[in-house]
Amino acid sequence: MLELRLVQGSILKKVLESIKDLVNDANFDFSSSGLTLQSMDSSHIALVALLLKSEGFEHYRCDRNTSMGMNLGNMSKMLKCAGNDDILTIKGDDVSDTVTFMFTSDLVREIFFYKIADFEMKLMDIDNEHLGIPEAEYHAIVKMPSAEFARICKVLASIGDTGDIGTANIVLRQNTTVDKPEDATVIEMNEPVSMTFALRYMNTFTKATPLSNTVTISLSPDLPVVVKYKIAEMGYVRFYLTPKMEE
């Protein structure tokens, strides 16, 4: 028996929008501690790791560890039927090969009418190997406004990475003299680091911008970059991308 209720159903909608362009199908792993997902893109260059902790749900019941394979495009279509203020309930069981998403509008219930919409989606078998990713010490960790990071990636990608039309340089300096802490740019650097990444992937990661006001980028020369969007009170979406290296 699996039953989860998320008051802010829009969080799962945003999560889906942030990962569906990177990964087509993925296993959602449910345990008593929460919901996790780890999946690589088809080229094994980038990886997404999601954590939504059980404490972040209004109601969370997971009798035994369950893995549900879902097509993220189809799931996104179903979640788009939910209003942004809707409460989302996810239901599953051990015997059927479907998962049910239920959307309820609490605001309407308070008046006199109770709207319930439910969508049943077919599950799929996905052979999904997990990578063991140990915690690492990074040479540099940048915490900055997520919208600014998205803007930088978009601008650089529009100029392109071939050098055909010219070059672009953007320098981002530490800036902590801001009114709101989420507007700060904080650079923790243990050692200088210089790396090259495929902008196409970085741009895909920035689809997670609506999930968090800030983004954390962790860099070490011999490791994939980690781009992390914290989901307040619940967990995170982390993206990993291997660097381009000179051969």
């Binding site: 063991g132 291997t242 290296m245």
Partner: peptide
């Protein structure tokens, strides 16, 4: 010439 290794080159499968 630039190359991009797969993630398995950095992390091992569980």
């Amino acid at each position: 010439y630039e190359t991009q290794l797969r993630l398995e080159a950095f992390y091992s499968f569980n």
